[in-house]
Design a protein around this nucleic acid. Sequence first.
DNA 1: TACTAAATCAAACGTTTGTTTGATTTTTCT
DNA 2: AGAAAAATCAAACAAACGTTTGATTTAGTA
Lengths: 219, 219
Amino acid sequence: MLMVNKMEYNAKQLQIIQVAERLFAGKGFSGTSIRDIAHEADINVSMISYYFGSKEKLIEALFEVRSVESVTRLETIIANADLTPLQKIFILIDGAIDRLMGNQCFHNIMLREQLSGEDRTQVISDLIFELKFKNWEGLETIIKEGQKKGDFREDVNVSLLSATLYGTVNQIITTQSFFKKINNLEHLTQEEFEKDLKLKLSKHLKSIFKATVAYETIE
Amino acid sequence: MLMVNKMEYNAKQLQIIQVAERLFAGKGFSGTSIRDIAHEADINVSMISYYFGSKEKLIEALFEVRSVESVTRLETIIANADLTPLQKIFILIDGAIDRLMGNQCFHNIMLREQLSGEDRTQVISDLIFELKFKNWEGLETIIKEGQKKGDFREDVNVSLLSATLYGTVNQIITTQSFFKKINNLEHLTQEEFEKDLKLKLSKHLKSIFKATVAYETIE
DNA sequence: TACTAAATCAAACGTTTGTTTGATTTTTCT
DNA sequence: AGAAAAATCAAACAAACGTTTGATTTAGTA
């Protein structure tokens, strides 16, 4: 049996991970059988055990690949010098929207895992913790900088603000079709709709953040 | 086989629903077997088919019971006369926090269902739609009233504001333990923690809403 | 070209799944 | 008390599950 210890997945494995990601997002981990995955990926059922060891190890591999990607993307965003704290916050907001909307399947799976009472594996809960912490830390750093410069209020609760950012984006993503229906946007294509949604969401969150962290005088 | 058409569940059925609710919330619908439920509820496995017809019908019954409760609670909150629009919004916020925090299991299950690509049954997606619509409608009504009175801005996006309210609360609930750890609140009991959390969350959301919908002059 | 390792396959493995059966106990009602 | 209905049970059911096996094909190497 072939076994990979860390972060070296060949094209076939990545293809399996991609299919599994889509199915896990749609039907959940327990709701997806390895025969579903094998059928959709057009491979033999035994290939999953062969390549990953087990179904559990497959979802662990999925988390390893995708959370590394997500952390990388976040860190590129954070590393923006020569900007005011408020500008940095705005970039963080747009980055969050892009990351969450651009990887809906993975974030759907991650939301499911967070809803689970008992952790599936330590590996996964560690990766989720790391992601959440990096997100929180990114906001915390910028806010402290803004406070030191005198731009931001002193009584800002970073955890709650972080919850508002990621919670609002998640809520919008999971209730997209409701949003579409209620706002009479059903004539738009999915692409147009997403573009429109991103724009509105961005403006909405930026306005909330500005009103919450900055003194009124700031322009 | 006994079969109930609508909304008449005896004590035993409600007990089964309660156990199923806790297990579905913890492990998901597919991740929970009827033997799990039967064991925890201390009944024979066949009683679930006997009382509800099937596992699917059981979760439908769960949704029927709980969403009626939730809608009822919401409607009692909305029916508040002799209050300013802003006061009504504040009551709506506290009501949402209480409802979501007080029924974490059911709302956990509902979140899972919303994450599912294909609906499990039409019954469930209809009930979820009704709940979402009532929530949205409640906010919409108050905001329009505030606009007519001249208290509120004209450019308020109700859908996004609604997403911020329910999204923030959901996010805080699903990441409670992270919130506890990051804010060094691990010495508190669960009861103390929840009380503290509700208070902070309430203040946070009220401040966001006030800044978003009301003109600066409002006090 | 011949040998070796990797990849792929159909089939079977033992469990667990949701559901049904048929007998038995408990409750309800006259 | 006695008949009828409802509730409960252990057992069995077929289907689906994740995983393993052992044979076969493909790819890489010398």
